[in-house]
Simulated assay, not measured.
Amino acid sequence: MAFQPIDPESDSRIEHKTAVLNGLTYHYLYGVPPGGSFKATVFLIHGWPDCSMGWRYQIPLFLRMGFRVVAPDLMGFGGTDAPKVPPAPISLYGYKRAADDIAALAKEVGAQQIILGGHDWGGFVVWRTAQWYPELVSRVFSVCTPYTAPHKDYVSLEDIVKGPLPQFGYQIHLASGEVEKSVNSEDSIRQFLRGVYGARTPEGETSFDPVEGVVLKNLPKIGESRLLNGKLLDYYVKEYCRHGIHSTLNWYRTRKSNWEEDLGLLDKKVIAIPSLFIQATYDSVLKPEMARGMNEYLPNLTRGEVAATHWALTQKPDEVNAIIRKWLEGQGYVTKASL
């Protein structure tokens, strides 16, 4: 079933709200089904370089199924605060702080339990939130991002890139501080977003390479993106111009901080609650082989896949939504007759 995506400028199905969570202000999208009653609350956590509006095709699905929806902008993104590092600690942009703030937002909206979904960085966040707050998260799902267990030994990003995951090379570039030197104006942010979302130059060249990172010399020539254009692109540009892109790149500077905090989860590697993982078969970074060992730690795992790139949420929304809907039907939350 196809749904009209949320309009970024004005949409009666959602409200734009803010809340102070553990001392910092978050912006989030908030929606309830018509009539105001709901069977459960779903939190949706975006990735990079996205924002809460990245769930624009999924929010209508959840509302139609009778769920309340909460979709925050992560730290450093959109209308959420972007503390400068330093003097703020880099851990503000890590999994544990995100989990703490999700728990605080759940309390803010009066949700004792939540269904938690994520994509990209948001996928990493939701797995960890389910571990840090098992009493809060009743179900968890991730699109593109496989579960990885906490590890007692630290492995640097450089060693990861030299070893099993050369396609993570772009993360070294994003963390380096070089990208924001060139992407620092409204026009350059616009070109940057077009490029990351698949646009090319007239010669067919890209401006993003998983191994090398952002191809800065190609940015001025990048054309239109089929996935992010028109007033939706205007919205994203406006949101990114609030803080610039530097704060969003802090997420790529947290590897050691995340590892240090993950040490508190070494005895909680197994996530026993019902979980769903949706693989994008053409994801050039989070490749299918990375998800092979998940069943060892997720005994109640359901798997699905869509023939899409990393941007499956908006590239193949009907297919993603169908998998989520079928999973929730199997969990007894919704019946086919209610759709």
Score class of each variant (00 low, 15 high):
153 D>Y: 09
139 R>F: 01
186 E>K: 15
147 Y>E: 05
203 E>V: 01
227 L>T: 08
139 R>A: 02
181 K>T: 14
245 I>H: 07
157 L>R: 13
229 N>P: 04
150 P>D: 09
186 E>P: 03
225 S>P: 02
166 P>R: 12
214 V>H: 12
241 C>G: 08
245 I>E: 09
219 L>H: 04
227 L>D: 10
199 A>N: 07
243 H>D: 08
176 S>E: 09
215 V>E: 11
245 I>N: 11
218 N>R: 07
150 P>V: 08
153 D>T: 07
203 E>D: 15
180 E>K: 13
143 V>G: 00
151 H>N: 07
223 G>H: 05
196 V>M: 05
186 E>T: 09
242 R>D: 01
248 T>P: 09
169 G>D: 12
217 K>R: 08
157 L>T: 10
198 G>S: 07
244 G>Y: 10
213 G>A: 09
193 L>M: 04
195 G>V: 02
170 Y>T: 03
212 E>H: 10
168 F>I: 07
223 G>V: 02
162 K>H: 15
247 S>G: 01
235 Y>T: 04
230 G>D: 13
252 Y>Q: 05
140 V>T: 07
147 Y>G: 11
204 G>Y: 04
195 G>H: 01
153 D>R: 10
154 Y>S: 06
240 Y>C: 08
178 E>R: 15
225 S>E: 04
197 Y>P: 00
155 V>L: 14
143 V>N: 06
149 A>C: 11
147 Y>T: 14
142 S>D: 05
219 L>N: 07
242 R>Q: 08
210 P>W: 03
139 R>G: 00
216 L>R: 08
208 F>L: 05
157 L>S: 05
193 L>K: 05
187 D>R: 03
174 L>M: 15
222 I>D: 03
238 K>L: 02
221 K>D: 13
180 E>C: 12
231 K>A: 12
153 D>H: 14
147 Y>D: 07
226 R>V: 11
207 S>G: 00
236 Y>T: 11
142 S>N: 08
172 I>C: 06
233 L>Y: 06
182 S>K: 09
185 S>I: 03
154 Y>N: 02
216 L>W: 08
212 E>R: 14
196 V>N: 00
214 V>K: 13
150 P>L: 11
210 P>A: 02
142 S>Q: 11
151 H>M: 05
244 G>I: 14
240 Y>K: 07
208 F>D: 01
155 V>H: 04
229 N>Y: 10
157 L>C: 03
200 R>C: 03
183 V>W: 00
